[in-house]
Design a protein around this nucleic acid. Sequence first.
DNA 1: CGCTCGTTTGAGAGGTCTCAATTTGGGTGG
DNA 2: CCACCCAAATTGAGACCTCTCAAACGAGCG
Lengths: 230, 230
Amino acid sequence: MSVRLAETPLIRSLPLFKEMSEQSFTDMMDLSMLQRFPARADIIREGEMPDFLHIVVEGAIDLFATRDGEESTIDILYPVSTFILAAVIRDEPYLKSARTLVPSQILMVPSQVVRDTFNRDAAFARGIVAELAARYRSVTRVLKNDRMLTSTERLANWILNSARRLKSDEFELPLEKRKLASYLGMTPESYSRGMSALEQHGVHSHGATIKVTDVAQLKEFARPALSDDA
Amino acid sequence: MSVRLAETPLIRSLPLFKEMSEQSFTDMMDLSMLQRFPARADIIREGEMPDFLHIVVEGAIDLFATRDGEESTIDILYPVSTFILAAVIRDEPYLKSARTLVPSQILMVPSQVVRDTFNRDAAFARGIVAELAARYRSVTRVLKNDRMLTSTERLANWILNSARRLKSDEFELPLEKRKLASYLGMTPESYSRGMSALEQHGVHSHGATIKVTDVAQLKEFARPALSDDA
DNA sequence: CGCTCGTTTGAGAGGTCTCAATTTGGGTGG
DNA sequence: CCACCCAAATTGAGACCTCTCAAACGAGCG
């Protein structure tokens, strides 16, 4: 029930932990676990109570909601992000389930330890609230896109954002198409049709490779929100 | 640029401020403003930078996103809630606009004062993070409903939640139908058709009056999420 | 009493989903 | 090494949901 000393430098350098005091950090690590999971491992199930704050240190996490056996991906997390912080803070049941997409390393901090440290270490508190605010803004953007854009426009925006983030007009899909479709709130079939529709708007794709051939044209089609640049 | 002493007891009793030190509280109030707005007053515009943390003390606030002149209501806030906290914390542009629905009183705390107090007063920090987490969970629920339910099912769930909250099977709509429709992610026309469809599922409505005549039947139709009770 | 604005109703179009069939691609075992 | 197999992806057809546009209706207010 403790994170080995050799593992801590990486964790220590994460934004969430960087500013906190040495004492708080080592105390917290003594009470936490760093665990490895294979791909497609269930980490959290919707409706359960939060015992730990989870932090993706390595790998990728699929956050999804369930109803009648149907799944919808709400968010996909890469290092270094927390999940599901809001449930831990409010000590209320998870609203989403989580599973690994690829083999992953996850840091698990007991909920009570998070709350105690939050109260004692202002720097850690700042980190928590910054992280939570970032997650909040992320969901808000997804909701806005769902409400105001067609599925093909959402796909176009996703491509634009990916290209911008990777600073490249050509890149490989980082996950299954069906998973991306779910994340964008559409079926695999719609994704497929959407992608072929985008051939007319400055995108060319071959299998998992996507190439933006005309950024200006794609932008015109996607009508990205002003505030999505931030 | 200061809140009058006579006004503070009400504010002081709000969950966000209740636990903080007397010193922090009076310092903060000295630097804040309590302002009255008429109905339909614009408070915040999407894309602007946050100068103040806003808190609805009285009235009701419509939070909405805009694109191409179209509006979509993301959330409706009643006393006592903050908005838009995440932008203030991250010091990034607002993702939504805000306007009053009815004459309202709004407490405005300069962003920098919020951040300073957050660092000095752990009780206030707890309040902030609890509020932010609550808002986060709220958006998450909206997104889940948008993704997994038809518009009529969303309406049914809204009625169920309202009846439960008010502990009454009969109540008046607290806002315009068109506004509620937008909040539920549908057009006024769809709202109207949805409401008449619900006549077959345990709901009866006359103008702004809604009466749940058969809770069990309505629940069966609405398929509420397990975790929405919390 | 007659506006005005919100609501309701109707008709039709568009977007997305479902179901089914086909094709593709990757991985496995012979 | 290759054929096979399975899952994912694509394509097609049709249904459903929701939207748009238009017109009729109704309640509140000057």
